[in-house]
Design a protein around this nucleic acid. Structure first.
Length: 306
RNA sequence: GGGUAGGUACCCAAGUGGCCAAAGGGGACAGACUGUAAAUCUGUUGCACCUGUGCUUCAGAGGUUCGAAUCCUCUCCUGCCCA
């Protein structure tokens, strides 16, 4: 029996995933599931270059604007939410089409996530306090003792990962490296297709710069101003554009500088996204150039899938 | 025209006789990533072999010295002040 299909349309920010996905979804009887840690939030429309209301009418989008930006969220919840939607689409005979650029989010769908209980808040808080107050190597040394394997993979400066590894150890009594082996992906159930959109670096960077300009024209400043009045979740608070404009509102620098930073940080982000995707050898690359229309690209992908 | 401060790698900038292919920052490039991931973290960045050595660099030309980005002379360029 044929396996069910599941498709991931991935690529750096600004490459044009949204419109291509729209065009593709129609052709293959798919519904779109956002694979983006920031687009999950409401009130961040311009900032995250979300599909417009009009676009969303053309094809159903899931996991887009489902949360207030004040609410904490994480990969595990994402996985749960996304798999639920997959199951629903399966029952309707529709293909799940994941679209986005958050590497961790797609990998957690494709390759699974190790099962650990919800975060232990108190342990986490204690560790974070220690991270801030103690000397830099302190927690790392502790980790080396309890989980040399994980410590070998984590850089001594990478505070966040050190904290998480220790948290899991303290919470479960077993090292994170033990849990990490217990991962179960979708491979048995689905025929998984990973597609990566690729555009020449210079062109991509130019597109990103232009897109940032456009965000400003669309009213980015007002949007962020409103967001800053809220008590943003830790994730939402670091969406590219928020810290940059905050600096402007606090009069640390002028608007041109804020724009420059926003563009630069978006480029850096795109680079990291590409690094992630390049590492994943399963990704099938779709090379595009500026002249290609979204429909043309969607057509190419369609052929590739059949 | 007179005075004065300067010209350092892709950019900004430290260095004022040997420990200097030259701090630091930015940018660029490369990488890691399993519950904050648009986050967090790492490496490279004069050239050539390849983790040590060789070669070419600190505006230009000459000089002093065992040894110069650093001292001297002249030239060119830039900022500022006075004319």
């Amino acid at each position: 029996m044929d396996k069910k299909k599941i498709i991931f349309l991935l690529g750096a920010t600004g490459i044009g995933k949204t419109t291509i996905a729209l065009s593709l979804a129609k052709k293959i009887n798919a519904e779109i599931i956002s694979c983006d840690s920031m687009q999950i939030y409401r009130k961040m429309n311009i900032l995250t270059a979300k599909a417009t209301a009009k676009q969303r009418k053309k094809s159903r989008h899931h996991l887009l604007s489902i949360l207030e930006p004040t609410v904490e969220y994480n990969v595990a919840q994402y996985r749960r939410d996304a798999l639920k939607i997959c199951a629903k689409l399966d029952s309707q005979g529709k293909i799940p089409l994941f679209v986005g650029g958050t590497g961790l989010y797609y990998s957690v769908i494709v390759d699974g996530l190790f099962p650990v209980l919800p975060q232990a808040k108190r342990i986490r808080e204690r560790l974070e306090k220690l991270l801030r107050s103690k000397k830099s190597g302190y927690l790392y040394k502790k980790l080396v003792k309890v989980d040399p394997q994980a410590a070998g993979k984590i850089h001594p400066h990478d505070g966040r990962r050190i904290v998480r590894a220790l948290e899991v150890y303290l919470q479960t009594g077993k090292p994170i490296s033990f849990w990490q082996k217990k991962r179960k992906g979708l491979g048995n159930e689905y025929e998984v297709k990973l597609l990566g959109l690729n555009l020449k670096r210079e062109l991509l960077y130019k597109r990103i710069d232009l897109r940032v300009e456009k965000m400003f024209r669309l009213g980015l400043i007002k949007e962020v101003q409103k967001l800053l009045k809220l008590n943003l979740s830790k994730t939402a608070a670091c969406a590219i554009g928020i810290p940059e404009l905050k600096g402007y509102f606090n009069q640390e620098y002028n608007l041109d500088e804020a724009k420059r930073l926003l563009q630069r940080n978006s480029r850096h982000y795109a680079k990291r996204q590409l690094t992630w995707l390049r590492k994943d050898k399963r990704v099938k690359w779709i090379n595009i150039n500026n002249a290609d229309t979204a429909t043309a690209i969607a057509q190419r992908i369609y052929k590739l899938l059949n």
